[in-house]
Design a protein around this nucleic acid. Structure first.
Lengths: 126, 126
DNA sequence: ATTATTGTATTAAGTAAATAGTACAATAAT
DNA sequence: ATTATTGTACTATTTACTTAATACAATAAT
């Protein structure tokens, strides 16, 4: 899957988000091994240093851990993954609603807008 | 109102977003005059150059225009403002739903999550 | 006429992010 | 034992963003 990186935010931050989403959505199952920093960097088309930074930051969250020479792995802590998933979803919803209210749409109106969007198909982004 | 700037994105970009939201939400009415670059910069606590850059970029969108020495004004084109409002809302919704699906929540589940959140109050952000 | 305010331009300096290139220790694979 | 792969560390360079400090022309205000 394409990494879809842009220059609007630090790349390492986008890499962190991408990996996090892949973990909580199950693409990287608990306990499974991640590709090496170099392999991930090549796949994403970024410098290994940048990927390394993203990994180092991700470790601070506890979602992944590294074993000196065997590689890097997803946490086996299902509770942590589920907690992260719920927190991330909650945060996304709050920020979304805040933005919509800022634009001028109440929560009720926003809900209706989403419902009336069920026919709209997504197009690719730049 | 506080500007709530952070270091996660370029400041000039956050300034653009802030002004845009203030325009489409009616805080800055069509045709009204904006404070001067220097005044806005001081209010936001940023360098005048940074605010100037945000303004220059905003002009390219057509939402505001400048008159050499009298100041800067919001467009009188109500259609453009409304179009921007609709486009922005649509974009926000699409990105939000995409993120939620990425996390693992369908559109239907997402709608339920929002509805079940009506009791949750917002707290201030860092 | 004079003054103040407007947008705008310029140069310099500092910082963070990203890339490039290289290197090393530990260990899994052979 | 040897080799390849792993995470990790380091220096140097480039680029984008931000701030700082001025400066100027046009014009609104006085």
């Amino acid at each position: 899957m394409a990494w879809n990186l842009n220059s609007e935010r630090p790349i390492y931050s986008q890499l962190m988000e991408r990996i996090t989403f892949d973990i909580i959505s199950g693409i990287y199952p608990p306990g499974s091994q991640l590709p090496s920093v170099r392999a991930l960097a090549q796949d994403a088309g970024v410098n290994p240093n940048t990927m390394q930074k993203a990994m180092a930051e991700l470790e601070r969250t506890g979602l992944i851990y590294s074993q000196r020479t065997s590689g890097r792995f997803i946490t086996e802590d299902l509770g942590m993954i589920d907690k992260t998933k719920k927190e991330l979803a909650s945060e996304e919803i709050k920020e979304f609603l805040k933005k919509m209210e800022r634009i001028g749409f109440s929560r009720e109106t926003t809900l209706k807008l989403i419902e009336n969007m069920k026919d709209t198909k997504e197009e690719g982004e730049s």
